[in-house]
């Protein structure tokens, strides 16, 4: 049986792991290479590395840090941040990434999803969607997509964009709730469920985990295939294994 994935996320700024609340107010949490080693030993199912200010600063991702991180972990690595074209994807894959997460560029140039999938296979193209609840009646799902690290409102409906991204060739979607990110109030379950039940690819949910029960709910009620968390792991509140044992006790498949 396929196991549910627990994925620590390294939000990287200027080569250091940081963690913010609601996408701002960044706190330093250490070196990405050291963090990667720790999570590898703890038995994380994957690792996610996001260069969170690359798009805003209009520069490419830090290839040498990606490379050092990849060389220190024997698990799959997803990398994102500032990916603009097929060449960027190729460079990151050659630096050691297994999957590439694209966000802002996929919105401004959806063809990038097609080109990425055709060149490297759908399984390596992850479309990341940062979503925020909205009362705007034109956005039917109730969630709007934001780009550039949550700074730019796009007017796109998160559910419609998710469906379109899959159609274009995304192999996985990383759904982040901007309302919940860093708040420790739990995943945005309606958002996760809305998307997971309407697309054919796996969903990774992100944003808001605070307690062990949040992981159980993310899978059971949100329908996610993987769950992403940052601060609860970085600052040592929970170890990966504690989460997995909790999942097992709740009757969910986890790799221990």
């Amino acid at each position: 049986m396929l196991k549910l994935r627990i994925i620590p996320c390294l939000d990287v700024k200027n080569g250091r792991v940081v963690k913010g609340i609601n996408f701002i107010d960044l706190i330093d949490a250490g070196s990405p290479v050291e963090q990667a080693k720790i999570y590898d030993q703890q038995g994380a199912d994957e690792l996610c590395f996001l260069d969170i200010t690359a798009s805003v600063e209009n520069r490419g991702i830090l290839l040498d840090i990606v490379n050092k991180t990849a060389n220190n972990c024997f698990m799959p690595l997803t990398v994102g941040g500032g990916v603009k074209n097929v060449e960027d994807i190729r460079k990151l894959l050659f630096a050691g990434a297994d999957k590439i997460s694209i966000n802002s560029s996929a919105i401004s140039n959806p063809d990038l999803i097609i080109e990425g999938a055709n060149n490297f296979g759908s399984q390596c193209i992850v479309v990341a969607i940062d979503a925020k609840a909205t009362k705007n009646s034109r956005i039917k799902s109730g969630y709007e997509v934001f780009s550039h690290g949550g700074r730019v409102s796009t007017g796109l409906d998160a559910l419609e964009w998710a469906k379109r991204a899959v159609k274009l060739g995304a192999g996985e979607l990383l759904i982040t709730s901007m309302d919940r990110d860093g708040t420790k109030k739990g995943f945005d379950l309606p958002l996760t469920k809305k998307i997971s039940s309407n697309v054919t690819v796996p969903i990774i949910a992100s944003g808001g985990v605070g307690e062990l029960k949040d992981f159980v709910e993310g899978f059971k009620l949100g329908g996610a295939s993987g769950l992403l968390a940052a601060s609860v792991f970085h600052f040592g509140k929970y170890k990966i294994n504690e989460v997995k044992e909790k999942l097992k006790r709740a009757g969910l498949p986890a790799r221990i």
Binding site: M1, L2, K3, L4, R5, D45, S122, Q123, G171, E172, T200, V201, P202, S225, G226, R255
Partner: peptide, 10 residues
């Protein structure tokens, strides 16, 4: 069942 088959499986 979601496609791709991504993750740890026995």
């Amino acid at each position: 069942i979601k496609i791709p088959h991504i993750g740890w499986n026995n």
